[in-house]
Amino acid sequence: MTNAYWCVLIAAMMPYIFTFIAKFTGGRYNNFSPREFLEKQEGFRKRANWAQMNSFEAFPPFAAAVIIAHLTGGEQGWIDTLAMAFIGLRVVYGALYIGNFATMRTLIWTAALGCNIALFVAGV
């Protein structure tokens, strides 16, 4: 199992960290209507929910990129480095999202997207 494959697992679990922040850091969570509950959140809890949704959106291209990089014979050290950079950037992205730092968040999002693109072409 490569480091990059472990990063796929980490990326798959990352949205749940933001979900936890959105649901359980204040207010009385309503498990009977969780989406309605999350829609009514404000401040950092609302942004944590948005970070959670964006993390779910970012996962499929990342997982595909890692698999494609492996299948096309990319250099393993480079694949691992890009995958770990993606994870680090996405953690920072989530923190910036929750902290309401929009411009920095966008720059970090762009860098993480760059890691995905680099993974897709790593075996070329």
Rank of each mutant, 00 (worst) to 15 (best):
F59M: 10
A69C: 10
I68R: 05
T103A: 15
F20T: 10
A63P: 04
Y16M: 12
A51D: 01
P15W: 07
E75L: 11
W6Q: 10
M53F: 13
T103R: 11
P60C: 11
A111G: 07
I67A: 13
Y97L: 02
I17E: 02
M104R: 05
F44R: 06
N116C: 15
F18G: 00
W109E: 05
G94P: 06
T25P: 05
E36H: 09
T110K: 05
Q52G: 08
A95D: 06
I10P: 02
V66Y: 03
P15K: 04
P15C: 08
V8I: 15
A69L: 10
G43W: 11
V66C: 00
Y29I: 10
A4D: 01
K46E: 13
F101P: 00
G114M: 08
L9T: 12
F18D: 01
V92N: 07
F44V: 08
Y29R: 11
A58W: 00
A85D: 06
S33Y: 09
L113F: 15
P61F: 09
T2K: 03
A118C: 15
D80W: 01
K46C: 10
L71G: 01
G27Q: 14
A22V: 03
F56C: 08
A118F: 09
A63L: 14
R90P: 00
F18E: 04
I67T: 07
K23V: 01
L96Y: 00
C7A: 14
A85P: 02
I87V: 12
C115I: 11
K23D: 03
Y97G: 01
E57Y: 07
M1L: 09
P60T: 05
F86N: 00
A111N: 03
I87E: 00
F59E: 02
L9F: 13
A112H: 06
V91M: 13
N116E: 14
A51C: 08
N30C: 10
V92F: 10
A4W: 00
T2P: 12
M104F: 11
A112K: 02
A12D: 06
P61A: 05
S33N: 12
N54D: 09
V8A: 03
